[in-house]
Design a protein around this nucleic acid. Structure first.
Length: 168
DNA sequence: AATAAGGACACTC
DNA sequence: GAGTGTCCTTATT
């Protein structure tokens, strides 16, 4: 609801890339976030007959995750390079926003579980501007941390459960 | 089918 | 050269 026309265009660009859509930005040039949110699927159809279904569905996903995704998109504009382990820490520090997709199993020991791998990967992709990010690739990066002593598997290995070697 | 481990290579800073 | 991102094979759950 706070987006200006530029934010809308950025979202469109990202969505085009994600779903390999043709460029539709021009058809939405004059819209800000409020306009976009008030659009029905029929409204989308009038502006972009080819992509209306995809755009409308994807906007629904964003609406349902509005707070968290807005903060991600916002910080990616002026963002410093962030490491994956720092990003995961950030999410874990905000259980109110992210507790449904990643949470501590044992905060003292730094053990955490990724409850929704696709969601966490999507958030990471947003932060890094990598629309093609998924859990396969995110987890590969986590594994790189094993030999660096940043993250490891807990003593009793469980799916989607990792442990920070140096808990805060 | 999803996740896990790690090699290999490309890319950006 | 670091830190991924991408792709892949193989094994495990």
């Amino acid at each position: 609801m706070e987006w200006n026309c530029g934010n809308v265009q950025k979202w469109l660009l990202w969505t085009e890339h994600l779903y390999r859509l043709p460029q539709v930005g021009k058809a939405f040039q004059d819209l800000d976030g409020k306009d976009l949110c008030s659009m029905s699927e029929e409204d989308f159809r009038q502006r972009s007959p080819q992509c209306s279904e995809t755009l409308h569905a994807h906007l629904d996903i964003w609406k349902s995750e509005a707070d968290e995704l807005w903060s991600e998109a916002d910080s990616s504009c002026s963002g410093q390079p962030i490491h994956l382990w720092q990003f995961l820490r950030e999410l874990l520090l905000k259980p109110h926003s992210y507790g449904r997709c990643i949470r501590w199993l044992n905060k003292e020991k730094g053990i955490f579980k990724i409850e929704d791998s696709a969601h966490v990967a999507r958030l990471w992709g947003l932060r890094k501007n990598r629309p093609a990010m998924n859990y396969d690739k995110l987890s590969r990066s986590i594994r790189q941390y094993y030999k660096k002593g940043i993250i490891r598997k807990p003593d009793i290995s469980q799916r989607l459960v990792y442990q920070f070697v140096h808990p805060v």
